[in-house]
Amino acid sequence: MSKRRHLLIAAGMGALTTMLLATSTAQGVGPGPSRASILLDADPGAVTIAPLPCDRRGEVALSMTNTGSEGEFVDALLTASPGLELSRELWSTYLPPADPTQAVSAPVTVTAAEATTPGEYELQMAAAEQTLSIPVTIEEPPGDGPDANLALYRQAFASTTHPNTTLCGGVDGNRDSEQWAASGIHDRTPEEFPDVFGVELSDAYEISRVEVYTLDSATYPAAEMGIRDFDVEVRTPEGWHTTASVHDNEEGHVSITFPHVLADQVRVVVHDSNDHKYSRIIELEVYQH
């Protein structure tokens, strides 16, 4: 393991990562190549994720800062160890001159295929003749014990997903409505219902409880913005089965319990929301008990 990587791991435990500074030949915007100093950075500087499709803890804000006096266009090539997948492989951007210095950032999300063996991996950003390594630790997938949330990080599905939200936001383990934009999901068909959001479990389980969290923050209370009329359905060997139909809901959290049933998928079918536009779900959880 390189010294740089040690530094990054140490920094990753804090709020800020260590920056790399090097002199580079980047693509100038004027005639002839110019030399500039480009700082590479990533926040967080290290990530830990489970090898599951909707584990979004691997989102990293990459950044580059031009400390030179000329603006530059720079390509950042992103690569990752085998077994990891990246949301982008190339980030090209303008970096304004240092007047004052301005960090320019772009997001990348690293995920791991389900067969990926737990261990140490890395994400690399190569730009301006430098390479920044971001350690990626693959941990064991969450267990499926009696009290485990079987939906956590599992493959989500939706009738539609608004681009301001992410499909996985409803199974990412984050119920905090104050972080709604980053950790929730809603559809992209305003005033059109029904909308569907669901999750594929890793196997068929005897489940008896589903927890539904809809948007409920100080700014956006559930009584105004949450889902109002919806069904909770489970997929049994015989097909989809409705376990509960909720009407006129104005709460941010609705707990649904029912006799144990063998199911491999769970979905929420929304027939109306309190603003009658979007179906906003902050988290969907599934339990055996």
Binding site: G71, F73, S92, T93, Y94, L95, P96, Q102, V104
Partner: peptide, 13 residues
């Protein structure tokens, strides 16, 4: 403005 000018540069390029 600083963030927008980066976007504008990318878009115009």
């Amino acid at each position: 403005t600083p963030e927008f000018m980066v976007r504008r540069a990318n878009a115009l390029r």
